[in-house]
Lab assay of single mutants.
Amino acid sequence: DNLVIALHSYEPSHDGDLGFEKGEQLRILEQSGEWWKAQSLTTGQEGFIPFNFVAKA
């Protein structure tokens, strides 16, 4: 599955970004460039995340 774990917390800075906490698990929905579309397994919310803040779970 496309699961990743957050290496750092991220505060959203643009509409459509997904904020998350360090250690949170996310499911990657789309990989494109440096911003990936993801869904939080904690909150169920979707949005874009910086790819370098996460690692394969």
Score class of each variant (00 low, 15 high):
D1H: 10
D1N: 11
D1P: 09
L3I: 14
V4M: 12
V4L: 05
V4F: 15
I5T: 08
I5H: 05
A6I: 04
L7V: 08
L7A: 05
L7E: 05
L7Y: 04
H8I: 12
H8Y: 15
S9H: 08
S9G: 09
S9R: 12
Y10Q: 03
Y10H: 06
Y10V: 05
E11A: 14
E11D: 09
E11N: 12
E11G: 07
P12N: 04
P12T: 06
S13T: 14
S13A: 14
S13K: 15
S13R: 15
H14D: 09
H14C: 15
H14N: 13
H14P: 02
D15L: 12
D15F: 12
D15G: 09
D15W: 12
D15E: 13
G16V: 06
G16N: 10
G16M: 08
D17F: 15
D17C: 14
D17M: 14
L18Y: 03
F20V: 06
F20H: 00
F20W: 02
E21S: 13
K22M: 08
K22Y: 06
K22E: 10
K22N: 03
G23E: 02
G23A: 01
G23K: 00
G23N: 04
G23D: 06
G23F: 05
G23W: 05
E24L: 01
L26H: 01
R27H: 07
I28P: 02
I28M: 03
L29P: 00
L29S: 02
L29A: 02
E30Q: 09
E30C: 13
E30W: 11
Q31F: 13
Q31R: 12
Q31H: 10
Q31I: 09
Q31G: 08
S32W: 11
G33H: 05
G33Q: 03
G33T: 04
G33C: 07
E34N: 13
E34V: 14
E34D: 11
W35F: 11
W35R: 14
W35C: 11
W36M: 07
K37H: 09
Q39K: 11
Q39S: 07
Q39V: 14
Q39I: 13
S40E: 01
S40H: 08
S40M: 02
S40A: 04
S40C: 06
S40W: 03
L41F: 05
T42F: 09
T43N: 07
T43W: 01
T43F: 01
T43E: 01
G44M: 09
Q45S: 08
Q45W: 07
Q45I: 10
E46K: 10
E46N: 07
E46M: 15
E46D: 06
G47T: 01
G47V: 02
G47F: 06
F48I: 08
F48S: 05
I49L: 03
I49F: 06
I49E: 01
I49C: 05
I49R: 00
I49G: 00
P50Q: 05
P50L: 06
F51A: 15
F51V: 08
F51I: 09
N52H: 12
N52W: 15
N52P: 04
N52Q: 13
F53A: 10
F53S: 10
V54L: 05
V54Q: 02
V54W: 03
A55R: 09
A55E: 13
A55Q: 12
A55G: 11
K56P: 15
K56T: 13
K56E: 11
K56Y: 15
K56Q: 13
A57P: 13
A57F: 14
A57W: 14
A57L: 15
A57N: 11
